[in-house]
């Protein structure tokens, strides 16, 4: 049986598919027609067998079975993984924590040489991130607040030294540090002795005043100025109270009441609008004093004390006097005058 017969069969099958009849095909290859005829007739019968498309319910059932098996295998696969390789679980956090601890342990032991080498690094140097990272590690492991504050100030001073060093060497590097605003003149501010150039595109938090603690990100420029990219307000300045007496201002005392214990508590209550009296004292500006508040328990008592100054309408519920317009009037840190 020659190889050619196989090709002839394929040619005839293609022709039958295209709509040609059996006799036409056989007439094309008369020498092979005897061999081809039974084969082509069988092929036609084989094609005539109905090809069943799977019913929709059969397909749904099979799909449900398959997806159920897939879900089970998915769970088995997840359960078979070591816990530190699973996603979205505590193992992931554990791995991160373990990595962090490993880095810390390295820096505390074998990494001391690297840390030492990074101590003189400046912003832009390869070892500078090591230097800053080591500072963060040191701060994280100091729990005494005073020592923590001391070390923070030391690091802030280090930042300023780095900036001055960059200025001296004329390097342009990106820096970020914390400092206190000393002066604001137009578009040039001074923070801890460093001149900051404010550009129109600089992002500045509103409400920054002299004395505020800020975080500055920017680039050192030639000429000893730092061009600000961003200035964030960290803390507003704390106001130092004025405690010395000022003779030129008439004092406005702050009233602090000290109610005496009484058997009839209801009579000692002072309500908004209650009529009370106090004995006037001359106090210094910003000072508070204690006054004996006399409740109008009886009309006779009230008459006997009527020469004393009334204050009920101005001092309801022993609140401080309304602001007289002086800024220092309500300082609570002032000394208390016993009266």
């Amino acid at each position: 049986m020659s190889k050619n017969l196989y090709d002839v069969l394929e040619t005839c099958l293609t022709a039958l598919d295209s709509g040609a009849d059996l006799e036409t095909c056989l007439n094309l290859f008369p020498a092979l027609s005897d061999e081809l005829r039974p084969v082509l007739e069988t092929a036609a019968q084989a094609r005539a067998v109905a090809v069943n498309t799977p019913p929709a319910n059969v397909q749904r059932r099979g799909k449900a079975r398959l997806l159920q098996a897939a879900a089970e295998m998915r769970e088995q696969k997840a359960a078979a993984l070591p816990f530190w390789k699973r996603k979205n679980n505590a193992g992931h956090s554990f791995r991160l924590a373990f990595s962090a601890l490993a880095v810390i342990a390295f820096m505390l032991t074998g990494g001391t040489g690297l840390v030492s080498a990074s101590s003189s690094a400046l912003p832009g140097d390869h070892l500078y991130p090591v230097k800053r990272g080591w500072e963060d590690v040191q701060l994280a492991f100091i729990f005494d607040p005073h020592e923590h504050e001391h070390l923070s100030q030391q690091f802030e001073k280090e930042r300023l030294d780095e900036i001055h060093h960059l200025f001296d060497t004329g390097r342009t590097e990106h820096v970020y540090f914390q400092a206190t605003v000393e002066q604001q003149t137009g578009n040039v501010w001074t923070v801890d002795g460093v001149q900051i150039l404010i550009e129109p595109e600089s992002q500045i938090d509103p409400g920054i005043v002299v004395g505020a603690l800020v975080e500055i990100k920017g680039d050192t420029e030639n000429g000893g100025v730092l061009k600000a990219d961003q200035i964030r307000l960290l803390a507003l300045p704390s106001v130092t109270p004025t405690t010395s007496p000022r003779e030129d201002i008439t004092a406005t005392p702050t009233l602090v009441t000290t109610p005496e214990p009484s058997q009839d508590a209801s009579k000692d209550e002072i309500h908004a609008g209650s009529e009370t009296e106090y004995q006037n004292e001359t106090v210094s500006e910003g000072e508070t004093f204690e006054a004996e508040v006399i409740l109008p328990l009886a009309s006779t008592h009230h008459d006997a004390e009527k020469d004393k100054r009334k204050s009920t309408e101005d001092v309801p519920e022993s609140t401080p006097y309304p602001d007289s317009g002086d800024e220092d009037n309500s300082q609570e840190s002032s000394p208390t005058h016993d009266g």
């Binding site: 049986m1 190889k3 069969l9 394929e10 084969v39 092929a43």
Partner: peptide, 8 residues
């Protein structure tokens, strides 16, 4: 091709 012929 060969297998097809023999099968038929």
């Amino acid at each position: 091709k060969q297998l097809q012929f023999r099968a038929l």
